[in-house]
Amino acid sequence: MSNLLDVANLTKRFGGVTAVDDCSFGVEEHSITALIGPNGSGKTTAFNMITGYLPADSGHIVFGGAKMSRPRPAQLARLGLCRTFQQARVFNQLSTRENLVAASQPSWRQLFGARSTAADREQADELLADFNLSDQADKLARELSYGQRKLLEFAAALVGSPRLILLDEPSAGVNPVMIETMERHVRSRHAAGATFLIVEHDMNLVMRLCDPIIVLDQGSPIATGTPSEIQMNSAVLDAYLGA
């Protein structure tokens, strides 16, 4: 199978610290790839460079065949790459439903049309029902619980059926029931054809859900493989346990 996303030689330095060091890896189409590593190994920095939130010092990405050395978030969104943030960033002053409408990438003509059309509402309500958020549709996003906001952000990333969804610690700060809910949604979208790249600290979740797993340490990949391969890998154990 071919790679949907290729990361080539990404490097980022902050002063004297090299956060991401000549990092290259690929994300296979229709996989649920995990990106793990000890704290400070450069996962989030790599994520931010891939999604255009942080300019890379060098290197480039290739997404769906398009090579980009300075990707922009909006451009990636239109090409079908969406991400979530660790802290569940939603539009707090908009209603839950409008959060999804705002993510619907209107054409220039639609930009000057109605704020939410019947079609917009239908599309949003379908997603909300899917995420069990229908009762919250008219509430402002800031009135939702943290877990609900996390779900809403995930739902907003799915508007427009992107090809690749990058999740930054989907299980961080949410209760166990919610982690299962997240997992279920990832699986159902995966079954529907989406590709995932997930940064995650919850090893149980990663081992259950993801294949392959890429392990970063000190800014570059040290191992790639199936969950059982990674669990047996001595370099990975060294990185985590500091042997």
Binding site: C82, F91, Q93, L94, A157
Partner: peptide, 11 residues
């Protein structure tokens, strides 16, 4: 609300 996030959802 969040300009960076708005970029990310394609606004």
């Amino acid at each position: 609300d969040d300009e960076d996030k708005a970029h990310g959802v394609g606004v």
